[in-house]
Design a protein around this nucleic acid. Sequence first.
DNA 1: TATTTCCTTACGGTTTTCCACAAGGACATT
DNA 2: AATGTCCTTGTGGAAAACCGTAAGGAAATA
Lengths: 221, 221
Amino acid sequence: MFSKVLTVDDLGSINQGLNTILETLGVKEIHQSHYCDEALLKIKKSNMDGDPFQLVITDLSFKPDHHNQKIVSGEGLAEAIKEEFPDTKVIVYSIEDRIHPIKRLIQQMQVEGYVCKGRRGLQELSEAIKKVYEDQIFLSSEVSGVLHSNNDLEIDDFDIELLRQLSFGLSQNDISDYLKKKNMTPSSLSSIEKRISKLRVQFKANNVIHLVAISKDLGLI
Amino acid sequence: MFSKVLTVDDLGSINQGLNTILETLGVKEIHQSHYCDEALLKIKKSNMDGDPFQLVITDLSFKPDHHNQKIVSGEGLAEAIKEEFPDTKVIVYSIEDRIHPIKRLIQQMQVEGYVCKGRRGLQELSEAIKKVYEDQIFLSSEVSGVLHSNNDLEIDDFDIELLRQLSFGLSQNDISDYLKKKNMTPSSLSSIEKRISKLRVQFKANNVIHLVAISKDLGLI
DNA sequence: TATTTCCTTACGGTTTTCCACAAGGACATT
DNA sequence: AATGTCCTTGTGGAAAACCGTAAGGAAATA
């Protein structure tokens, strides 16, 4: 079993349930952080000392504070960890149950596990830790369909940016001008119409309002 | 101090931090529920037995389950409690930090306190319990501006319904027809345009897409 | 009763979105 | 070189949204 684990959340108190799980599994050293920046520092230090954390368990959402933090979310933390210390295993443990952000964590950030907080959260977290220790990926039963549902596989960064600009209230003409100014392609009004139309078909949206609402519900934007 | 308190969340394990707070404050009887329906049953029973819960502390979001529940959210639970047992104090303790849902809890549901989960969550919860015991209302510092910001005071149920229908992809014409069919007033296309225009001004939205996006961010819909 | 105010409804004109079709260019295959 | 495919861009017309103006009606006020 892992011998040195870091847990990161913004509870402001020790997370007793989580600690108990880790102790039960035989983890010797259990450390805690309440801030992402502090967590990353601890991880760096442990690596410099030659005694790195083998596993990091982090929440996703951290409330802002009077302290200004560079990293403000578990997603950012996961990204930073995987960039600098790709061998450190990461399990994300959060209330989030929307497909897209989780897919992003697994596919882009390459985290080893995702567990939904909730009724079976701690049980699943225990399973997740065991699986990850055996070099497997673990996904909560609630979101196990994430990797197979190729519903939004063909949605690229351009689409996301398009949806974001739309949700900011730009007209399709505005977006076209914006893209032309930045010399990005495609930028024609016609192309933008086409993309939006494609997205609307994919998400079965009646119009752009509906499309943006769906995108927000899915956590796409 | 309260002597009999019920806590409701879907953690699936005892919430040790919360229990400790309650014990420290001198609460004798601490009960727990993991489902809203079960919580309401316990409250009913305690009232029938002549030994009612004096305070209920509940989360807002409960993950659905294989059990089908009548009440699926803390908001519904608060509503049911206040309807049937208006003397029972209710404090909501949740991650939610959007203004509107919280305003709704305080103003519509008449709950006595709202505490944001987060860094200072448990400390604030302790303060909240003491305040509520003294017949005062308590709001987390994060959301203390809620009651004064009269930004959306003049938004009524019609507006909400309008925004919801828009987010479902109905055209303004569709909505007009829908309202006419239900003999609801106003129902004319012109009135709908007017309402939407008013909302757009209030929220400084460039178009309906923007308006719906903002409404979703605020938790209005 | 007369007046004011507010809300609903209607109408016309402009802008934007929606949609089908078509032309041009980049790239790979034959 | 010729062909086909994919992507980008353009065009035109119908539908919907946007915006100002105005008429009608209900309730409150004088």
